[in-house]
Structures are given as structure tokens and as C-alpha cells.
Simulated assay, not measured.
Amino acid sequence: MDYTVITAMENPEQKRMHDEITHQIWPEFILHDPISNQNWRNLYTTFAEYQISILIDGEVAGFANSIPFCWCESLENLPEEGWDWALLKGFEDKSNNKKPNILCGLQIAINRNYQEHRLSYSIVAEMKSIAYNNGFKYFVVPVRPNLKSKYPLIPIEDYIKWENSDGYPFDPWLRVHVKLGARVTKICHEAMYIPGKIGDWEKWTGMKMPGSGNYVVDGALVPVRVDIIKDIAEYSEPNIWVSYYLR
């Protein structure tokens, strides 16, 4: 399918359109990551050239967000804090005038009207091209293995070993990246940390949490930990670092 790619530099209204899609496709609790809420808006101004929209007939069919950062260690040493860490690292490096050598993908979202068009491959390919054309050595992504939400009690270490009949990863998003040349680098067990009062989590999930323990929540990759005495529910989401060597 023919499409056009534009960046937030070309159209600053992208964030509003992206937010509308984000609220449609993500579980409510994902929208309450404190690190994201503190920094996300600035992504579209500080790093506008790395926020892209895929337009089909003038409509945002999908989009991607990314951030550059500097990393001089082995990619196998990328942090456990994955997504949260990458977002903070990009802004910290910018403030400290550190020259980045890696572009990190933060989000790929596809409009529900276009989810049967295999746009995932096209969007990842566009992100790789942006990374290459801007001189980055690597393109990395803390991938959210979205089908893991169907298997929240299976350890992530086991889940990433699952394969389909063709020998590719069982998880659809991991499969996209591997087919496009990515290497599965490591698990980041605490990629997103979302704490909240129990009442907040009950509102976000639409389920009661009347006692302490681990709760299986729709859309969550692992159970949510609840402590009634402390009035807190905590979610630590595992993601999987994948990496592309570009030059």
C-alpha cells in the first residue's frame, strides 16, 4: 500500500493525532507510566525529527516514536529498566551535549483501521532508515511482546524461546524485528514501572482488588502486585531489547 512519511518537524499537530490513536489501542494502565507522563510531550519538540507518521490518503495509518542516546558499552549491557531508562537517557544526553550513537524506538502504533495491512514491517523499516540516514551506528528497541499478555504466568525467559512452525519467534512483534534483521539481545525485566494506589488501578482496569496478592490484569504481560496494607499496586513490565547493526 502506498504511503507518505512525515515527521513532527513538518507537522507539529502530529502529537494530538498520535495521542488519539494511543488512547484507542493501549490498555489504560500503560498511559500512567510516571516517567512517560513527565517527559513524553517534550519528545515532539526536542526530538521532532524522530517522531514520524505514516499517512495513507491523508489519514494517520500508523506512527512511531524514537529517541537518540549515547551508549559506549556492549549492547548486552543495556539496562534492565529498558523503556523508562531509554526515555530518560535521551533527554539527559541532550542536556549534557553528549553525541548520540544509537537511535532507540519507543513506540510503534497502528490505527485500528489499518491493522490488517502489515504496516508494522513498513514502520520498522522507516525507523531503521531514519537511524541510518542520521548516521547512527545502531537502532535498538525495547520491544513490548504484546502477545505475552495472553500468557501472563509464563516466565518471559521461556516465552522468548517459543517459535512458530517456520522457526521464527512466536510473538508477532519479535517476529517482525527478527525478519527485518534484528538480533534479540536481552530481556529487560523492569522496562516500565507503573505504581499507583489500589483505587487508581481498580479504575484503570475495571476490576476489584480486595486483598493482597498478584492479579492477572487484561493487557498486562505479568501480574500486578497488590499490597492492601500499603495501599499500593505495582506493575513492572518486561520488554525485550532487540538491536540492528547499521554501519
Score class of each variant (00 low, 15 high):
Asn42Tyr: 13
Arg16Gln: 13
Tyr50Leu: 06
Asn134Asp: 04
Arg16Asn: 06
Lys148Ile: 04
Pro145Gln: 03
Ile229Trp: 10
Arg118Trp: 09
His32Tyr: 13
His189Val: 04
Pro79Ser: 02
Asn37Ile: 06
Thr4Val: 10
Phe91Glu: 11
Glu157Pro: 06
Gly196Asp: 12
Pro100Thr: 00
Pro223Lys: 03
Met192Lys: 11
Ala191Trp: 03
His117Lys: 08
Phe170Ala: 15
Ile56Phe: 06
Asn239His: 15
Thr22Ser: 13
Ala220Gln: 03
Ile198His: 04
Asp19Cys: 09
Ile54Ala: 13
Ser165Arg: 10
Arg225Lys: 11
Ala220Arg: 00
Trp83Asp: 11
Pro210Trp: 06
Gly135Met: 02
Tyr244Ala: 02
Gly58Pro: 06
Asp2Glu: 15
Ala191Tyr: 01
Phe170Gln: 03
Val242Asp: 07
Leu88Asn: 12
Trp85Gln: 00
Gly167Gln: 03
Asn39Asp: 00
Phe91Pro: 04
Ala182Lys: 09
Lys89Trp: 00
Asn96Asp: 05
Ala48Leu: 08
Ser66Lys: 02
Lys15Asp: 07
His18Arg: 05
Arg118Asp: 15
Ile110Tyr: 04
Asp200Tyr: 01
Pro169Arg: 12
Leu221Thr: 15
Ile102Ala: 02
Glu92Cys: 12
Asn37Val: 06
Gly196Val: 01
Val124Gln: 03
Thr185Asn: 10
Val224Leu: 15
Met207Gln: 15
Ile52Trp: 05
Ser243His: 05
Ser95His: 08
Ile228Ala: 14
Gly105Glu: 00
Asn133Trp: 00
Gln38Phe: 03
Gly196Pro: 00
Lys15Ala: 13
Pro210Lys: 07
Ser53Arg: 11
Val141Tyr: 13
Leu103Gly: 04
Ala109Asp: 14
Ser120Pro: 05
Phe170Asn: 09
Ile30Tyr: 14
Ile21Arg: 07
Asn146Arg: 09
Thr7Gly: 04
Ala131Thr: 11
Met207Lys: 13
Glu59Thr: 13
Trp201Gln: 09
Lys179Ala: 14
Gln14Val: 10
Tyr50Gln: 07
Ala125Met: 04
Pro155Leu: 11
His32Trp: 07
Thr205Leu: 07
Trp204Gly: 12
Val176Ser: 10
Ile160Lys: 12
Trp83Arg: 05
Tyr3Trp: 07
Thr22Asp: 08
Pro195Ala: 13
Ser129Tyr: 10
Met17Lys: 05
Ile102His: 11
Ile21Met: 03
Gly105Lys: 11
Asp200Asn: 14
Gly105Tyr: 02
Lys89Tyr: 02
Tyr244Ser: 10
Asn111Val: 08
Leu43Arg: 14
Val184Pro: 11
Glu80Leu: 08
His189Ser: 15
Asn77Leu: 06
Gly62Asn: 11
Ser165Asp: 13
Ile154Phe: 01
Val178Ser: 03
